[in-house]
Design a protein around this nucleic acid. Structure first.
Length: 1132
RNA sequence: GGGCGUGUAGCUCAGUUGGUUAGAGCGCGUCGCUGAUAACGACGAGGUCCCAGAUUCGACUUCUGGCACGCCCA
């Protein structure tokens, strides 16, 4: 006996039971053990940060991450799933600062770096429990207790190894990075923080004259007209930039006679602004101006360096600065088309400097000029303004320019400018900071090559967002002037400035003359519970110094920076194993990944950091560890890039807007399977989806409940009829302790089990559909297309429920429990359900497990304990019958048309009809349909189905060209062809076609032949018939009703009333009853008498009498316009 | 301002290499079924496939240019 199935399934409750079962029997662990030694399917977990609450978007990521490993495991692969946590970085520091009520780095230093990072380490686990709970509840199988953690010593040392590798290969260097700088707080702000602080302000907009020099260095009398909104950057000017493709005009200021150069398109605008009359004297391309020198507005640097020339790489010399250079970012949207360049205070300006530097030989090019200190005040290099806050100095600088006669025009400019988000009055400035970089640009081509080998889903990521990002690669700014992060493992000699990288803590301790280890020892003494991993972090690591190998008496001290936490996560493919200090074997066997998935916001994050690090470390034929060079792609082969999940209102999910529900709420209300199915089955994973509770809820009736109902139906009747699949189910020769996946073969010797070929058409049809579905699902899932796979599954379950079960009900209800047809029905449905539960297991692991446990449970220890231990179903191609499939489709179409026609004629299905006539455009399957019309007769409740030959009575033929075939052949004649065919007599054309095998028409002066396949025939029902038409089929109802048919209809009405009453009385499915009917209508009485056997059979009535039954409450109802009293007594 | 993506029914979304009746679910309407039953099914209404051009015999589909929204970056 199967366990009886609750009528109303409580999915969330069932899921909790399954979770318990999995835990108790270690099903996940077993599923891995069963695949030990098999081919590997490698999965990488992109580490989430556990210091924020998980939201539904995280469910999506985790669901996809679960789906494919589960699928592959069932397909026979060994798929380890090691968890991981991202723990470093600014967000963690910000959280701790919030908690402490402090902001600036100064305040952190005051509070103490040591307690601060201790707090960071604890904060990282704040929402750990919620994350673990979500992971488990969603059914995401992953080893959380063996998760890698980015702050662990082994992980840090692994990252150190990779950095040492880069350092030793001269791929790590120090340079400047222009950052958004909060001068008052002495700290750089992250992009996110800067983004929060934009607001509209009015800044000065100044047009300044830069006098041009000739070859000899003499003033030419012409000036560049240069525009800027930050006058305070003018003392640090190094270049003036023009766009090489723009046209520039030399104009004469009519009033003063001065000559100026500016973009031609801006002459009028600038003239109007300054209220000057400017007449154009000549024009030239920007490219013609390149290299010309000018006198900058301030001579703080120019005085000494103005005449300096440097050697160019290609030979020759050039002045290092104060000349015109080309830049693509120059526009004519505002200003003068000539842009002042102060590389210290603008990222694009800085890039111009770097480009210039690269043209000169080493040490010969321009140095960065910076007259401003980190406090935002002018330094002694600009003595006139020394000590003044730059923004405040703008006015005086402008005044000085005016006094010196080089200010052409001044006005106000409204624009968006960033301010500090925690000190609203403080404007941010762009400012250069010493920073460490990785020379990723050297590897651009290698990274692109690597990228080209990756299978991106969707495909456009490869050459789109990700490819473009790689094309525009700049060196990776690695260092951060922060506290909680992987320390940059570089020690500097205080005598020589020479450096070395260290990749292991023990190696550091073994250095000669090492001191400073007591700082950690002391801390550990004070707080023995401190995790040892902290010793490789600030401030402890900073305390450790040792004797310089470069010069005696020198000491080696670590540089102060920590690294970008994206580097941490990108190092995960090897660092998760502590490679190469340990875990070599694991790394070798788990690299590269077959599959990763994250949302699209990781393009520049984890996707890039992994690819870059891997390409640099393992992608070039470097002299390195054994076999460092690897074929691309690595470190991942397939990557599903998920869309972002938006809130209910289509906006970004936000806690404060409350535009989404907590994941737990969804689990409690609808269950994890509903959520998972919603994710997998409703759209390709890369489309961004809007969080929608109704849509999640819909998964239940749409899919889960439909499958559940079939399952429930099966269990109810299998138990009633005592259907027992066990018998000799386990084939001889197989050891009793082998547990089975229960495939078709396992039943071959069972009682009442017939080979599919011997079963009826409907059974063979559904088995054919099943195997087609299996093949399609496997094909889709191997291509990482969960959406396509779900559609196939959904179609199958729909067919199983709404056609197979519906049309097989009679067989399940048949009284002869041993008839082969009845047993066929049970076996077929049983096999379908078992296969389906395996098929859907990766998608809805809970529901499938529930089904499996009950359906396979009757086998006890002969069957596998969990569906997740089974092999994924394999398609039996011999069971697939494409012709049958097509025929059944046609049959269903006819049934549908029949219902449609009934609807139009307002003839309910309970009323039997004498006949329908079916007209087929193509008679290929007619004979088969005729043989199987019992199904149709029953479905449509008609006595007879005829396939009409002489169709012209009911319909007209409309002939259309097969555009795909005929189009290319006739080209421009197509409209004429269409017209000729549709306006011709369709019947006539068809007769020609049948007689000659072709139709020949004169169209547009040409003779055109059409064969069978060139023409498409549509049927059109003529008016006046109760008919419905499909593209190739028409169904016509015969609507004359005889008295006999009417009485049969009445009997059916009575039947339905009795069934209704049974339900009200809460009858068991097998309860037998006595029926009494009281009515005045002779007609009804006759209807019942004539159909008594039918009613008795349907309603399990032992007797029907025409009188009241004593002691029974009657049901009063109306049938065919007559009042009827129905008495029902249950026989107990 | 740049890159990428999206725009299809009231809502949420599909739409395979261009082929002439553009689909699903929900919602709505009408009806049916009643031994899966607090389920289920059928049928129907509902569309300027964002707009404008171009290519083509033919464009939701390809191209160009707009518009709107989203993401990433300036």
């Amino acid at each position: 006996m199967f366990r009886s199935v609750p009528a109303n399934a409580n999915f969330p409750q069932l899921e909790l039971e399954i979770l318990e079962f999995w835990k108790e029997h270690k099903i996940y662990e077993q599923s891995l053990e069963r695949r030990a030694g098999r081919d590997k399917f490698v999965f990488y977990e992109g580490p989430p940060t556990a210091n924020g609450m998980p939201h539904p978007g995280h469910c999506l990521t985790r669901a996809i991450k679960d789906l494919f490993p589960r699928y592959r495991t069932m397909r026979g692969y060994y798929c380890e799933r090691k968890g991981g946590w991202d723990t470093h970085g600014l967000p963690v520091e910000v959280e701790v600062c919030k908690e402490l009520g402090i902001h600036s780095k100064e305040e952190i230093e005051q509070y103490g770096v040591e307690p601060f990072i201790q707090k960071c380490q604890q904060s990282v686990w704040r929402y750990m429990q919620e994350w673990e709970r979500l992971t488990e509840r969603l059914g995401f199988w992953i080893h959380l207790d063996e998760a890698y953690v980015t702050y662990h010593q082994s992980y840090v040392e692994s990252v150190w190894w990779s950095l040492k590798n880069l350092f030793d290969r001269d791929l790590l260097y120090q340079g400047h990075k222009i950052v958004w700088w909060w001068a008052q707080g002495g700290t750089a702000l992250s992009a996110g923080e800067v983004g929060q602080g934009y607001r509209e302000v009015a800044d000065p907009s100044v047009y300044v004259k830069f006098p041009l020099l000739d070859e000899a260095g003499e003033k030419t009398g012409t000036s560049l007209l240069v525009w800027t909104t930050t006058p305070w950057t003018l003392p640090s000017n190094q270049f003036a930039a023009v766009h090489p493709e723009l046209t520039y005009a030399t104009v004469v200021d009519v009033e003063s006679g001065e000559k100026l150069i500016l973009a031609e398109d801006l002459v009028e605008t600038v003239g109007q602004k300054a209220k000057r009359e400017l007449t154009i004297e000549s024009t030239c391309k920007g490219s013609a101006l390149l290299g010309k020198r000018y006198v900058p507005p301030f001579d703080y640097y120019y005085k000494a360096e103005g005449d300096r020339r440097g050697k160019l790489n290609g030979g020759g010399e050039q002045h290092v600065a104060w000349r015109i250079v080309a830049a693509d970012f120059v526009t004519i949207d505002s200003g003068s088309g000539v842009v002042h360049q102060a590389p210290a205070f603008g990222e694009v300006d800085y890039d111009v400097l770097v480009a210039e530097q690269s043209r000169f030989s080493d040490g010969e090019g321009p140095e960065l000029i910076n007259a401003v200190g980190p406090d935002g005040k002018f330094t002694s290099e600009a003595p006139d303004y020394e000590g003044r806050w730059v923004k405040e100095a703008d006015k005086d600088i402008t005044r000085e320019l005016r006094e010196r006669g080089i200010l052409f025009h001044l006005d106000q400019y409204l624009h968006e400018y960033p301010f500090c988000w925690r000190a609203e009055e403080d404007p941010l400035i762009q400012y250069p900071r010493r920073s460490w970089f990785i020379r990723t640009t050297l590897f651009k081509d290698r990274m692109l090559e690597n990228n080209s080998k990756i299978n991106w889903l969707p495909e456009h990521i490869k050459d789109g967002r990700f490819g473009n990002f790689l094309e525009a690669n700049v060196d990776w700014a690695l260092s951060r002037e922060r506290y909680w992060g992987t320390p940059l493992p570089i020690w500097v000699c205080d005598k020589t400035g020479k450096m070395e990288a260290i990749d292991q803590y023990d190696e550091l301790l073994a250095k000669p003359g090492v001191t400073g280890t007591e700082v950690w020892a002391e801390a550990k003494k004070q707080r023995p519970d401190l995790p040892d991993d902290l010793r490789v972090h600030k401030p402890y690591i900073d305390a450790i110094t040792y004797n310089s190998p470069f010069e005696s008496g020198g000491r080696m001290t670590r540089v102060p920076e920590v690294i970008d936490c994206w580097y941490d996560s990108g190092a995960m493919p090897f660092a998760q194993w502590g490679y190469p200090h340990q875990g070599r074997k694991e790394f070798e066997s788990q690299f590269p990944a077959d599959f990763i998935s994250e949302a699209i916001d990781q393009t520049r994050g984890w996707f890039y950091s992994q690819l870059a690090i891997s390409t640099l470390l393992f992608g070039d034929e470097v002299e390195a560890e054994e076999g460092a060079y690897r074929e691309f792609p690595h470190p991942f082969r397939n990557c599903i890039v998920l869309g972002l999940m938006l809130g209910e209102d289509g906006q970004k999910m936000s806690k404060s807007k409350r535009n989404y529900r907590e994941p737990n709420e969804i689990f409690d209300k609808f269950g994890a399977d509903a959520l998972r199915w919603y994710f997998f089955a409703n759209q390709p994973p890369w489309t961004s989806i809007r969080y929608s509770e109704p849509a999640i809820k819909d998964s239940i009736p749409e899919f889960l409940l439909r499958l559940w109902n079939v399952y429930s139906f099966f269990v109810i009747y299998a138990n009633i009829d005592g259907f027992d699949p066990v018998g000799q189910a386990v084939p001889d020769g197989k050891s009793a302790d082998v547990r089975h996946s229960l495939t078709y073969d396992d039943f071959a010797n069972s009682k009442g089990h017939r080979p599919a070929a011997q079963r009826g058409e409907l059974d063979r049809w559904v088995l054919s559909e099943l195997n087609r579905t299996i093949a399609a699902v496997v094909e889709r899932m191997d291509a990482y297309d969960n959406y396509g796979a779900c559609q196939k599954i959904n179609d199958f379950v729909d067919g199983l429920s709404n056609w197979y079960v519906r049309r097989s009900r009679d067989r399940f209800w048949a009284s002869d429990k041993t008839s082969p047809e009845k047993l066929d029905a049970y076996w077929t449905l049983y096999e379908c359900l078992l296969s389906t539960s395996k098929l859907v297991a990766p998608f809805v692991p809970f529901l499938s497990e529930t089904l499996w446990q009950n359906l396979a449970g009757v086998f006890g220890d002969s069957a596998l304990q969990s569906v997740h231990l089974c092999d994924y179903p394999a398609s039996d191609t011999s069971a697939i019958d494409a012709t049958l499939s097509e025929r059944m489709r046609l049959l269903r179409e006819i049934a549908s048309l029949g219902r449609s026609a009934r609807m139009n004629a307002k003839l309910k299905v309970r009323q039997p009809l004498a006949k329908v006539e079916v007209i087929l455009a193509d008679s290929a399957h007619q004979a088969w349909l005729e043989e199987h019309d019992d199904l149709l007769r029953d479905e449509l409740n008609v006595k007879k189905i005829e396939y009409t030959k002489d169709a012209e009575t009911y319909i007209e033929y409309q002939v259309q060209p097969n555009f795909k075939r005929v189009g290319p052949r006739v080209g421009k004649l197509m409209p004429a062809v269409k017209k000729a065919l549709t306006s011709a007599d369709g019947g006539e054309l068809l007769k020609q076609l049948t007689a000659n095998g072709k139709v020949v028409l004169q169209i547009g002066g040409e003779t055109i032949e059409f064969d069978d396949e060139d023409l498409q025939v549509r049927l059109q029902a003529k008016a006046g018939w109760a008919a419905a038409q499909g593209p190739t089929t028409v169904v016509v109802l015969s609507i004359e009703l005889t008295d006999e048919l009417l009485r049969e209809g009445h009997a059916r009405d009575i039947n339905r009333q009795i069934q209704d009453r049974r339900k009200q009385l809460d009858c068991a499915f097998t309860d037998r009853i006595e029926v009494g009917i009281v009515t005045d209508s002779e007609e009804l009485r006759r209807a019942i008498e004539e159909n008594a056997e039918y009613i008795k059979g349907e309603t399990l009535a032992d007797s029907i009498v025409f009188e009241a039954l004593a002691g029974v409450e009657p049901l009063e109802c109306e049938v065919a316009g007559h009042k009827v009293l129905i008495y029902i007594r249950v026989i107990r």
